[in-house]
Design a binder for these strands. Structure first.
Length: 540
DNA sequence: GGGCAAATACTG
DNA sequence: CAGTAT
DNA sequence: GCCC
């Protein structure tokens, strides 16, 4: 087994790489350097988040990290192919400053306890490690805090908007919602240390999701299958009998039978049947191209184009967006290692700060990156300024990114003029989609950049951090309470088309400065981004 | 049998 | 406006 | 496809 690790840092990257390398060598660990994965080999990703960390590692963090690596290495037979741990440096520092509950002496023993804690998390227990050893509760909390809390409380230090924009009224009382059971967003997630113990089942279901993905109808059937996969992925035990899942939400009679079949035979007949159609295979292949959806794929198929390979011979059938999608198809399909996602986000951020040196800017790389995942499909960067005079034109930033040879192609042309949204407000949201490549890198990546007005930013953060189940669940919850929530804010749901503008323009003194404000206001517990891998985790 | 999240932006 | 995408 |  190889340990692949990468180090995410700003100005200290080289230092941390050297440190981590040295440590692994001292442990006689076969390591694969930064950001390397060895195909076919179980590999472990230890991401050491060094954002804003001071130069040099704090001692307690070193010990914890070291113990974690030792643990991982000793766990060679372990099934998970990917483990991630996140260390929150600022929190460490704060604890040090304010006095960690354990005190100085305890820090030295943190290694063993941390190991036990990781073991506990993997085994699904909540207070004892796999071997039954109790973990000191104060240390337990501290470990959870290390990994689950901290950094993403968001924009507390960032100047708030001056103009409140939300017409909704806060919850009068903090009710206890028994109905929470059904909401994915209420289930506390866990860290990315969560492995998929049910690949044997998720692999069997994936073809069904893929199949319903390529048509426009049957959206809900697709969603249901997708939910099943994410539910299975979230379980902390390996399913050996369908009966174990009988009581789970989302497992109905059909799916139950399929799980049963998959466990007995190793596959789902239905999933095999649907892919026997050549047409389905063709449609799926054509839709790999950005800009080609169900309808276009069907048209192309009618014209005799049956694959991407054949499409390359008939580029005259494509529009400008689809042409770019085709050109960069092979690159775009590749997953982006976490370190590179971070570097791309940083490139955009650095460019923006250099372009607008006098602006206070908040810049966040969202998506699965922000949820702590070790790889991403694309990079999603959103920005805001506290300046109500308006965000500077996103087009200027894109032009600068072009000038720096960072952007290779545009999928959209950002416009200066800003349309009026349904609430009758000028939507100062600006969006861009394109293809980028870091200097010195080989592979092109999908990049989205968005500029949001300050008062919408917490909602934008929520939306673009996801995941999809989390968003839908949270919005469903808001809706049942009479609100309608989007990436721009929260509004009254009962509002009629005609009265939309009037109501929405009635300002209420409701400020949402951070994501946490939104959680608080709706009346449910804050979820750190890494806890929003809903159905990446469920609780018993 | 209805609901399942939600609204905007771009292309042609 | 339909289709695609976020 | 599942839930109420």
């Amino acid at each position: 087994m190889k340990v692949a690790f990468f180090v995410q840092g700003r100005d200290v990257t080289a230092k941390y790489v050297a440190l981590a390398t040295k440590r692994l060598e001292a442990l006689e660990v076969d390591h694969a350097g930064t950001n390397v994965s060895a195909p076919g080999v179980t590999h472990v990703v230890a991401s050491l988040f060094a954002r804003e960390a001071p130069v040099g590692l704090d001692k307690d963090v070193q010990i914890v990290t070291l113990a974690w690596l030792q643990y991982v290495v000793s766990k060679q037979g372990h099934e998970p192919s990917e483990l991630t741990a996140e260390m929150d440096w600022r929190r460490c520092k704060a604890m040090q400053r304010n006095g960690a509950p354990d005190g100085e002496g305890q820090v030295k023993s943190a290694g063993a306890d941390f190991q036990a804690w990781v073991e506990m998390r993997l085994s699904g227990n909540t207070s004892t490690s796999a071997d039954g050893r109790r973990i000191p509760s104060r240390y337990l909390q501290r470990c959870n805090a290390f990994v689950l809390r901290g950094k993403y409380l968001g924009l507390a230090d960032f100047p708030p908007s001056e103009i409140p924009r939300h017409d909704a009224q806060p919850s009068k009382k903090r009710k206890r919602y028994d109905a929470h059971q059904g909401y994915a967003c209420f289930k506390s997630g866990t860290i990315a240390v969560q492995p998929n113990l049910n690949e044997h089942l998720t692999n069997a279901f994936q073809p069904l999701v893929d199949y319903y993905e390529i048509f426009n109808d049957e959206e809900w059937r697709k969603v249901s299958f997708k939910r099943v996969i994410d539910l299975l992925r979230s379980l902390k035990f390996k399913v050996t009998s369908a009966d174990q899942l009988r009581s789970y939400r989302g497992i109905g009679p059909k799916v139950f039978a399929m799980i049963d079949e998959a466990l007995r035979t190793g596959y789902i007949t239905r999933a095999k049947e649907v892919w026997k159609s050549d047409a389905a295979v063709s449609l799926r292949d054509l839709q790999r191209v950005h800009g080609i959806g169900a309808t276009v794929a069907r048209d192309l198929h009618k014209r005799g184009i049956r694959s991407v390979a054949e499409l390359r011979e008939h580029k005259e059938l494509l529009n400008s967006v689809q042409l770019i999608g085709l050109e960069y198809l092979d690159d775009i399909e590749q997953r982006i290692p976490r370190a590179e996602t971070g570097a791309i986000g940083k490139f955009v951020e650095d460019t923006a700060r250099a372009l607008w040196p006098s602006k206070a800017l908040a810049v966040e790389t969202c998506g699965s990156y922000r949820r702590g995942k070790s790889s991403s499909g694309d990079v999603d960067v959103i920005l805001t300024t506290p300046d109500q005079a308006g965000c500077p034109p996103l087009a200027d930033l894109i032009a600068e990114l072009h000038a720096r040879k960072f952007i290779a192609a545009d999928l959209t042309q950002p416009k200066d003029q800003l349309p009026v949204n349904r609430q009758g407000q000028v939507a100062r949201k600006q969006t861009y989609m394109g293809i980028c490549k870091l200097p010195g890198y080989k592979v092109h990546r999908r990049l989205d950049v968005k500029f949001y007005p300050r008062e919408q930013f917490p909602f934008a953060l929520l939306y673009f951090t996801g995941n999809d189940h989390f968003n839908r669940s949270m919005r469903n919850f808001a809706k049942r309470k009479g609100w309608s929530m989007s990436d721009e804010g929260i509004f009254s749901a009962q509002r009629q088309r005609s009265e939309r503008i009037a109501k929405a323009s009635r300002p209420v003194d409701t400020h949402f400065r951070t994501e946490k404000d939104v959680f608080d206001w709706l009346g449910f517990p804050y979820k750190h981004p890494t806890e929003r891998n809903c159905y990446d985790v469920t609780f018993a």
